[in-house]
C-alpha cells in the first residue's frame, strides 16, 4: 500500500485544490452578473458553483494533477537531499505548481485567460493560495499511514464526481440533458415530460448518493446498489436492441463501466473486511 499511496495522494490533493479553485471563477462571475442587475439568487448561484466544480473542475483536475506531480517530486527530492522539508515545503510546491500551471495555460492556449477567476490580481492570489493548501493537504496525506480504504474512498469520490455532472444536467438544465438522450422535451406531452424528468433525475441522484454513502460508511452494499443499477441499464439496453428492435446504442459500454466500477469497489471492501475477520 505504501507505493500506491503517493499517486492517490497527488490525485486527492489535486481534487481538493480544484474544489478550492473553481469557486473563485464562479464567485467572480456571479459578482459581476449581480453588478449588471442580473437576478442572481440561491438557485442560480448553486447552478454556477456546482457546474463549474464539475465541468471546469474535471479539466482543471488534469492540469493540477500534472503540475502537482512535478512539484511534489521536486519537493520530495529537496526534502531528501537537504535540511528543508515538512509541510511548508510541499505547500510552497503546491502554490508554485498552480502558479506555473496558470501561466502555461495562458501561454499555450491562444494567450488568453480561460479561467475567469484568474483575470484579477486578487483572483491570482487566491489561486496560489489554493495551491498552497493543496500542497499542505498532500503532505498530510503522505505523512500518515494509509490502508486500502484511502484508495477506495478516492475512487468512490471520483466516481461520484463524474456522476455529479449527470445529476447537475438533469437538475438544472433538463432540456439539454434530455436532448443528450434523444428526447425533445418540449415535444412530449406534459405527463411524459414529468415522467422523464422525475425518473431520469431520480436515477442519477440515487446512484450519486449511493456512491457518496459508500465512501462515508465503507459499507459495500451502497456501492453494489449503484453498480446494479448501471449494470441493469446496460443489460436492458441490449435487450432493447436485440429483443425489441431499437437501434444499436453503444452507450451500454459506458453503462457497464459505470456499473462495474462501484461493484469492484464493493468487492474489494468485502474481501478486505473478510480478511480482517480472519
Amino acid at each position: 500500500m505504501k507505493i500506491a499511496k503517493y499517486p492517490f495522494a497527488v490525485l486527492s490533493a489535486a481534487l481538493f485544490t480544484v474544489m478550492l479553485i473553481t469557486p473563485i471563477s464562479s464567485l467572480s462571475n456571479l459578482i459581476w452578473l449581480a453588478s449588471v442587475d442580473m437576478p442572481v439568487g440561491l438557485f442560480s448561484s448553486l447552478e454556477v458553483i456546482l457546474f463549474d466544480f464539475q465541468r471546469l473542475g474535471i479539466v482543471l483536475l488534469g492540469v493540477v494533477s500534472i503540475g502537482f506531480t512535478v512539484a511534489f517530486v521536486v519537493a520530495g527530492l529537496i526534502s531528501r537531499y537537504s535540511s528543508l522539508g515538512g509541510k511548508y515545503l510541499y505547500a510552497v510546491a503546491g502554490s508554485a505548481a498552480i502558479g506555473v500551471s496558470l501561466i502555461l495555460m495562458v501561454e499555450l492556449l491562444f494567450q488568453t485567460q480561460l479561467l475567469g477567476g484568474n483575470r484579477t490580481l486578487i483572483g491570482t492570489i487566491l489561486h496560489w493560495g489554493a495551491g498552497f493548501f493543496g500542497g499542505y493537504f498532500f503532505y498530510k496525506l503522505i505523512s500518515e499511514e494509509k490502508n486500502y480504504t484511502f484508495i477506495i474512498r478516492f475512487l468512490g469520490v471520483f466516481y461520484a464526481y463524474f456522476i455529479l455532472g449527470l445529476v447537475l444536467n438533469w437538475v438544472f438544465t433538463p432540456v439539454s440533458a434530455a436532448a443528450e438522450f434523444g428526447f425533445a422535451l418540449y415535444e412530449l406531452n406534459s405527463a411524459a415530460q414529468n415522467a422523464l424528468l422525475r425518473d431520469f433525475t431520480s436515477f442519477f441522484v440515487a446512484t450519486f448518493l449511493f456512491s457518496i454513502l459508500g465512501v462515508i460508511t465503507l459499507n459495500p452494499v451502497w456501492f453494489f446498489s449503484a453498480g446494479i443499477i448501471y449494470i441493469g441499464a446496460g443489460i436492458f439496453n441490449l435487450v432493447a436492441i436485440y429483443a425489441h428492435g431499437t437501434d444499436f446504442n453503444q452507450i451500454f459500454v459506458g453503462e457497464f463501466v459505470l456499473g462495474s466500477w462501484p461493484i469492484a469497489l464493493g468487492l474489494v471492501i468485502n474481501h478486505q473486511q473478510k480478511k480482517l475477520k480472519e
Binding site: T22, S25, S26, N29, L33, V36, M38, P39, S44, E47, V48, F51, D52, R55, L56, I58, V59, L60, L114, L115, G116, F172
Partner: peptide, 17 residues
Amino acid sequence: PAITYGIDYSGAVISPF
C-alpha cells in the same frame, strides 16, 4: 455575456441566464 446559450471553452458557466 450576461445572457447566453453557450458555456465557456473550459466548461465553466458564463451565465446561468
